[in-house]
Write a protein that binds this DNA or RNA. Structure first.
Length: 936
RNA sequence: GCGGACGUACCGAAGUGGUUAAACGGGCAAGCUUCAGGAGCUUGUUGCUUAGUGCAUGCGCAGGUUCGAAUCCUGCCGUCCGCACCA
């Protein structure tokens, strides 16, 4: 079977038949969504997981009689696309290579490739190039997506809808403005994100919150920064780098001494700085300054580890708790002794000294070890440290309390100033320095606004969360959500409608975009212009607010169109189901809930979220550098959609990790091929007739299991049944049934094909074409389970036969004989009576006394001793009691009926007897359902 | 540190108080089949033991609740994730 050909054949037919383009009707609807993907190049199997799982489930819902809408759109907001453009423009070799490779996957002509890559200097060109490719690639998976309703977050309808949302936020008092520190590129003169910073993804840059402390020095202050104000009672000296350049400057009217590099940073953090003169670091050597908190003279010593481009270029020294300071003093052979200030669990008076000794650090050149030691002490101190008696009014506080109190006091009393610094030195993609800048008037979403969290909680309480363990995480997230910056100075997206200098940040603009799915194609059809999609417009379409006539008048949209839009929205909304990744929980999904409760009437709040697991390739995370990325193009070429779908769903439960491993994938591929052959064989051989009850019963049972599993989105359980259990049953039937019976049994293949359809739709369509010759199995009705067909007794008889065969084999092996005659001795009559009684009794009690006394009241008493033994052993090991207890006659007849097949199987004479009629001592070991076996 | 999840065979994994734990998939081994390869089929894959279809052990470790625990509770060990403004 040529998978590519089959995939394309059916996808074309589905498309031509508009099979997955639903409109509102009288049926119950089901709107299932997945996160819209961000464009970033070729799609790979990581992207494929969420859509495939959603698709399998969507197909099942559709076949179960619901009107299912599975739509998809594309996200282009934010800075990553800009980062790509910038990288290409600045000829970043990595970026060029990456995108050349992406484009090459679609375009053969080398010159054309280069031309396209160069065009990516314009971000819109990236969007225009990749989106059609993404649609094609997703389609290759066989998704039942209605592509008519797709849009990007850059389109007018999306932007207008986001504007509407933000106006709602504003009206509700959910927005506020304030100061906010951001990473900032001096050359780009703009805020930057992870994507704009060189190696920002590998080694993320954070903003660290320092306190600058002022040390009275000459006519002003030497200023040193610290992350650990709680250690200030342990200060012994200051450090300066004599090789670096410093300045004397007026900062907000005071005279400060700081490194030259610090000046710009101070300016970007809202300080007024006028440089008076430059000074060498050596100017400060061995001079004294007065340390804050301890109000004592400390000497300024030289230290090469002090970097002028970090903070102010001065560092205050706390040798008791800072490994760098301790080692630096050691190397200087200084007389200065550390002052013990913090009691840290697991350490004595001088943790820095202890740790350095333990880690064998003796020199400042061991920078890596020193950093590690600093980290460890920082952590240990923060979690377990308590300030000692020599720390003034802060004595007895924990480190975390003291850090806050001392910081607050320093800021309040004016000898400290807040200052942000990057966690490492960083440059933007164009090579310019990245610093921390303070933005004024930053816009925030204020989740703490009155009533908002309560409503969000109400929405959550009404939602299904699958699996439910994630509910608590939602609750925790809601609890700690406070204020979130929601707009930036740059990036693609929607401008804040009431402050157009700002672009709405990309997570905040993608919270309610699903609301466009019911109407996107209609907006296009009716040629509704951007400027017509006003606040009144969305109020009407989304919430039914306002009068049709008024809205038509104010927007210029005709009443019929408005009515249609409104009806379509009201039909499809709310979202019935969103399938997504747990990483979205603390941000996107929580924001989605908050945004819905902020802007939509209660009946449109989302109803269900389900979560899926991670994706690995060959046991590790997929990444370009590891070379284990599998793109959807490769997938299509080598395996085809059905193999992926079957592999994903059968090897991985929805919530666990999928590991793409080629060995297993090709097994699945082969399995599908043989499954196809098996099913085709059934289609060809089926004839009217009667197949035995046990086989029908087992098939019905599997059908039931598959239906139950897929209904609760247990895709793995469902896949196992349709891919493995059913073929195993077919093979068993082929072995045990006569030709005529098998031909009759083969009729079940039609149901099987339907059951396969959500999972492997292309293969199922092929089979269906063979079987019925027309129509689409993709929209067939899910088969009903006929409980009446499930017959445990008939099934038990077959199992008993198989068990008997296996037992006889064991006995033969143990007896080491080639049997001429095999006797099957069916248990004595009284044991059936006992087992039946025991089965009922065991349902009520496990108490031996009660059971025995009940049994001894009956005529079983005459077998007294044997009964006791048997009851004891059954109670000890209740599995001895078979699921179904027949009577002696039925068992005899059943086995007698198998005689011929047994004789064939063992090429031996078979004698079937009741235990009572046998003189063999083995007859006693026979139990109901477990006859004794004697080989001769 | 806080919060959450997990720990079952050689591997992935099913089973969440009661019908033989390990279904199912894979690996490995033996046998059959095939000119060969690929593959397919059968059997086996905790230990002990046996003239008889057996017994014992067993779900990270140690306890507890229960007639009965992989499953519930407690403690310990180990692994993973989140703790934000980043899509």
């Amino acid at each position: 079977m040529d998978s590519q050909k089959v995939v394309r054949k059916w996808q074309k037919r589905w498309k031509d038949a508009k099979l997955f383009e639903p409109e509102q009707n009288k049926q119950e609807k089901y709107l299932i969504t997945v996160p819209y993907p961000y464009i970033s190049g070729s799609l790979h199997i990581g992207h494929a997981r969420v859509v495939t799982e959603a698709d399998v489930f969507a197909r099942f819902q559709r076949m179960s009689g619901k009107n299912v809408l599975f739509p998809m759109a594309f996200h282009i907001s934010g800075t990553p696309v800009l980062g790509i453009s910038l990288g290409i423009e600045k000829k970043d070799p990595k970026m060029l290579a990456l995108y050349t490779e992406y484009v090459k996957a679609y375009i053969n002509d080398g010159k054309e490739v280069e031309k396209i890559v160069q065009s990516f200097k314009d971000p819109q060109k990236i969007v225009d190039f990749f989106i059609p490719k993404m649609v094609d690639e997703f389609s290759l998976l066989g998704l039942s997506v209605d592509w008519r309703r797709s849009f990007t977050s850059g389109e007018g309808m999306h932007q207008k809808m986001v504007e509407w949302l933000f106006k709602k936020y504003k009206e509700n008092g959910y927005l506020m403005q304030g100061k906010y520190p951001v990473l900032f590129s001096l050359t780009l003169n703009n805020a930057v994100g992870e994507d704009d910073i060189k190696d920002g993804d590998l080694d993320p840059v954070e903003k660290q919150d320092f306190v600058l402390l002022k040390f009275a020095f000459e006519d002003g202050f030497v200023v040193a920064g610290t992350l650990r104000p709680e250690t200030m009672f342990g200060q012994t000296n200051l450090w300066v780098n004599p090789q670096a350049t410093y300045v004397k400057a007026k900062v907000d009217g005071e005279t400060w001494y700081v490194s030259k590099d610090c000046v710009t940073k101070l300016q970007y953090q809202e300080h007024k700085v006028i440089v008076e003169k430059e000074l060498s670091g050596s100017y400060f050597l061995n001079k004294k300054a007065i340390a804050p908190f301890i109000a004592r003279d400390v000497v300024i010593l030289e230290a090469s580890f002090v970097k002028p481009n970090i903070c102010t270029g001065f560092v205050t020294s706390v040798p008791s708790d800072a490994p760098f300071d301790y080692i630096a003093l050691q190397q200087l052979k200084s007389q200065i002794k550390p002052i013990s200030i913090i009691q840290t669990k697991g350490f004595g008076d001088f943790p820095a000294m202890e740790l350095c000794k333990k880690m064998k650090i003796t020199s400042l050149s061991q920078e890596t070890e020193l950093k590690e030691a600093t980290q460890e002490l920082y952590k240990a101190g923060f979690h377990t440290g308590i300030l000692k008696d020599n720390c003034g009014r802060f004595s007895g506080m924990t480190v975390s309390e003291a850090r806050k109190s001392m910081r607050d006091e320093a800021l309040k009393d004016g000898f400290g100033v807040q200052f942000y610094e990057t966690s490492r030195s960083a440059v933007s993609r164009d090579g310019g320095d990245v610093i921390v800048a303070m933005l004024d008037q930053q816009w925030f979403i204020d989740f703490t606004a009155k009533g908002w969290k309560e409503n969000a909680k109400k929405c959550l309480d009404g939602m299904t969360i699958q699996p439910d363990v994630y509910r608590k995480m939602f609750e925790d997230t809601f609890a700690w959500l406070e204020r979130r910056p929601c707009a930036r100075r740059r990036g693609l997206g929607t401008k804040l409608p009431f402050d157009t200098n700002w672009v709405i940040e990309s997570l905040s603009d993608s919270t309610v975009y699903m609301s466009l799915y019911p109407i996107a194609h209609l907006l296009r059809e009716h040629k509704i212009k951007d400027n017509q999609m006003s606040e009144e417009f969305f109020d009407f379409v989304f919430n039914g607010h306002g009068a049709l006539k008024d809205v038509a008048k104010s927007t210029g949209v005709n009443e019929q169109a408005l009515k249609e839009l409104r009806q379509s929205f009201d039909y499809w909304y709310p979202i019935d189901h969103r399938h997504t990744f747990p990483a979205h929980l603390p941000n996107h999904l929580s924001f989605m809930i908050f945004a819905h409760v902020a802007a939509f009437d209660k009946k449109y709040w989302p109803k269900k979220v389900s979560f899926h697991g991670m994706v690995l390739s060959e046991g590790v995370k997929m990444s370009k550098s590891k070379g284990n990325t599998v793109t959807l193009l490769e997938l299509d070429r080598e395996y085809g959609a059905d193999v992926f779908r079957a592999f994903l769903c059968s090897t991985t439960s929805v919530e666990s990790t999928m590991n793409w491993d080629k060995g297993t994938v090709s097994h699945v591929q082969k399995h599908l091929e043989s499954l196809f052959e098996l099913a085709s064989e059934l289609v060809k051989s089926k004839k009217k007739g009667e197949s035995p009850a046990w086989a029908l019963s087992q098939f019905e049972r599997l059908k039931k299991k598959a239906s139950e599993c897929i209904a609760r989105m247990d895709l793995r359980g469902y896949s196992m049944v349709v891919l493995y259990d059913i073929p195993a049953l077919v093979k068993k039937a082929q072995k045990l049934l006569s030709e005529q019976q098998m031909q009759a049994f083969a009729n079940l293949v039609s149901d099987w094909i339907v059951l396969l359809s959500p999972l492997v739709p292309h293969l199922a369509e092929e089979l269906n074409e063979l079987d019925r010759g027309k129509g689409f199995v993709s929209i067939a009705t899910w088969p009903k389970v006929d409980e009446k067909r499930i017959d445990p007794i008939e099934e038990f008889k077959v199992e008993a036969f198989e068990q008997l065969v296996s037992d006889i084999k064991t006995v033969i092996t143990l007896a080491k004989v080639t049997p001429k005659e095999i006797s099957v001795l069916v248990s004595s009559q009284w044991k059936y009576q006992l087992f039946l009684m025991l089965r009922d009794l065991l349902k009520e009690t496990r108490d031996m006394k009660v059971i025995i006394s009940a049994i001894m009241k009956t005529d079983l008493k005459k077998s007294g001793e044997d009964v006791m033994k048997l009851v004891q052993s059954v109670l000890k090991d209740p599995q001895k009691l078979p699921e179904v207890v027949l009577d002696q006659k039925t068992e005899l007849d059943t086995i007698d009926g198998m005689k011929e097949r047994l004789e064939q199987a063992f090429s031996s004479k078979i004698v079937v007897l009741a235990a009572e009629k046998s003189s063999d001592k083995k007859a006693n070991v026979a139990l109901p359902g477990k006859p004794a076996i004697v080989v001769k």
